[in-house]
Design a protein around this nucleic acid. Structure first.
Lengths: 191, 191
DNA sequence: TAAATAAATTGAACTGGTTCAAGAAATAAT
DNA sequence: ATTATTTCTTGAACCAGTTCAATTTATTTA
């Protein structure tokens, strides 16, 4: 939980008793490799902050049955289906542990209650969403504007920690390229 | 400005004097067709809310010199380079009026001051950013998971107003396909 | 309303990346 | 340790969508 406080403290300052208040709203949960945090069709009951391990968020193509990676999350990242969590509607997404993982969870009702009791958290969430939206916009741009190799190079620069922890075929899908293509790119000597 | 209040009121309630306070922080500006709101390299000084008309946000490819549409914005939408605005750093983006356009502008310092005086606006911005991030994630997903035709069909369903107001070649770029391809898709009878 | 400019269309040649298939290497389970 | 499973690699055939080029249609502007 220390990790979450540290993350929040980057944007707003917290008093001792505010930390305690925040703490009381969260549940820590452990997931085995392959265990689901969210399954397609069900409602995203919890917003998750990753304390340790790694998760993948993905959509299964109804035709080919293939996983399309939507996001990857490791320690110090958030992982949930924003839409499903906030509207409490059925999710199109699956979230599954890639490796043994520990997450801090908060339910929708707790989330609302916590924000009412501690309105300055609105600011924290506003800022991290701002950063998230910026990152997403660039990720989308790069998918069309740059070829597979440049995208992988940019990914290596930006997320070395992800590259080290996540299997290559999932990174390929995250980048919007086939696993075979990424393998061929990595085989090239001029990276 | 009434449009902005209406937009905000969808998520939080505003008192008469709060509206007045908000009003005092905004500048209304008119842009001619082709006029720039933001140019690559310069700092995004204002966050813009579109009152009337249409804007395009785009990045010019350094190699081909082609415009890559990042976003399209019409009446009742926000339009700015979030990253450049919040960090006051040089932008990679251009924002230009597609047609004669009226925008409401707020500077970074006014934005901060306004949020301090009226903290409940944090909540408004948090929620619209949440929705924005959700929309972006889906837009990115569709670019890889669906073919050009399905993307255009989904676009027609989701943004009929955009389709009616924006030239076809800009919509093509927004969807991540060539103008020629979109022309061919539209020529097909089974849309 | 005519000339100039911008936008849309169409066809042919091309290509970056996919898909399929089959084997090798690495990792996990017993 | 050995087996089972998952991940990675490599090559060949293929294709959705691009690029280029030339023409038509629509929209501005003087």
């Amino acid at each position: 939980m220390e990790l979450l406080f540290k993350n929040i403290s980057r944007y707003i300052s917290l008093l001792e008793k505010e930390r305690d208040l925040i703490s009381s709203y969260w549940i820590v949960k452990h997931l085995e490799r392959g265990e689901h945090l969210l399954e397609e069709g069900s409602i995203c009951r919890y917003d998750a902050f990753v304390l340790e391990g790694s998760l993948k968020g993905y959509i299964i193509d109804p035709v080919s049955g293939k996983e399309e990676i939507i996001f990857l999350a490791i320690s110090d990242w958030w992982a949930s289906d924003l839409e499903s969590f906030h509207n409490q509607t059925g999710s199109k997404m699956n979230i599954t542990a890639i490796s043994p993982t520990t997450v801090a969870l908060i339910s929708r009702s707790s989330f609302n209650e916590l924000l009412e009791k501690l309105p300055k958290l609105e600011r924290y969430f506003r800022i991290i969403l701002q950063n998230y939206a910026t990152a997403l916009l660039m990720r989308m741009y790069f998918r069309n504007a740059q070829d597979a190799k440049s995208r992988y190079k940019a990914f290596l620069m930006k997320y070395p920690a992800l590259n080290a922890q996540i299997p290559q075929y999932l990174i390929a899908s995250y980048l919007g390229i086939s696993a075979e293509m990424l393998s061929k790119i990595r085989a090239q000597k001029d990276l």
